[in-house]
């Protein structure tokens, strides 16, 4: 059972790849946010909101990247059905964004 979750022949399991991606995303976001908030509170720097926004954008991009990377990993493993699932999710996200902006 449970073939999808096992480490097969030295291939890095998808969970670890995604965990690494999410960790990098959250660390970069946290650093930018902390720096921005500190700059705002301590010196009232004019670039502070920009730093915070950059942190928020990095955080926002992380789950979208997560779906994209998962799709690539599934495709590499020739797991075409799951690669297709990722594509459906990405297309729905894109359509939702276009629709939302148009309002």
């Amino acid at each position: 059972m449970n073939r999808g979750h096992e480490e097969n022949g030295g291939v890095v399991p998808i969970e670890m790849i995604l965990a690494r991606l999410l960790r990098i995303g959250s660390i970069i976001a946290a650093i930018l946010l902390a720096a921005g908030i500190a700059a705002m509170l301590l010196v009232g720097a004019s670039f502070a909101p920009g730093l915070i926004t950059a942190g928020l954008v990095v955080l926002l991009a992380t789950p979208i990247m997560r779906v994209l990377v998962a799709g690539v990993v599934f495709a590499k493993e020739k797991d075409w059905l799951f690669a297709l699932f990722c594509l459906v999710v990405l297309c729905s996200l894109a359509a939702g964004v276009i629709l939302g902006r148009g309002e």
Binding site: G36, M40, A48, P49, G50, I52, T53, L56, V57, L60, T62, P63, I64, R66, V67, V89, S92, L93, G96, V97, G100, R101, E103
Partner: peptide, 21 residues
């Protein structure tokens, strides 16, 4: 939930509802 929220968040960003402070 991160993925579900991301599409909504993009729209809020575009509308300028996300206040950095």
């Amino acid at each position: 939930i991160g993925v579900t929220a991301a599409s909504g968040a993009v729209v809020y960003f575009a509308r300028g509802d996300v206040k950095p402070l």
